[in-house]
Amino acid sequence: MGLELADQIRSALVAGLVDMTSADGETIEAYVASPADDHPKGSVVVIHHLPGWDEATKEIVRKFAYHGYRAICPNLYYRQAPGAAPDDAAALVRSQGGISDAQLVSDVGGAVDFLRSLPDSNGKVGVIGYCSGGRQTFLAACSLKVDAAIDCYGAFVLGTPPSSFPLKVGPLDHIAKDLSCELLGLFGAEDSFPAPDETANLSELLDGLGKTHEFVTYENAGHAFFATDRPSYRVEAANEGWQKIWGFFGRKLS
């Protein structure tokens, strides 16, 4: 039945798991979604948040495919917990102190290479991440050659987390000069991490470095306003945010 139906579907999508090679040579698993056609298309790397390679993030990957992009979300915890349920993997990784920035850059770099290597890639790759993935998006965009980056409410891009935070994160202001592409930042006015003054400081830093960026801070929205499966979801901010994303990636990845 499924295969019979597949022959009748127009504008079909494909989605599922692939093995990909990280830039350091390790094989990791990734979730990919794409229009099921051979037309040239832009690509997006989706960086999952600290709670893991979860269902909600994979839904975002499919949303990009619906809008014509090939999107991939590498399982950033695969090395630490291959084959584990995403929530179990996230818990284990947290107990181990998280993943290093070097591993993140390696895995996102491998994902960028994977996407660009596909014959129908137009060569353009953007990066987007939510929450902790927002900080990691900035990290990736300063460490790799990409064509667009979107930081959705990433905290601790600047400044050092309190000493009680044992994960391996540090400030990224020293690499801001290496930002390789235009940056779109989507934030909530009611967020404390990052608070509006932190994103204003980042904007000021980028202005000083001559780095093109646009930051949008939505009123009546706090952290994780895109997350449809959480009470933090704010439909107005999320809908406007998605429109910003389609416009930005539409300009930078076509």
């Binding site: 600290l50 902790s132 409410y153 601790f156 935070f165 991490f193």
Partner: peptide, 9 residues
């Protein structure tokens, strides 16, 4: 936010 604070015992 994704808090980074973790107590481990």
């Amino acid at each position: 936010m994704c808090t980074y604070s973790t107590e481990k015992v």
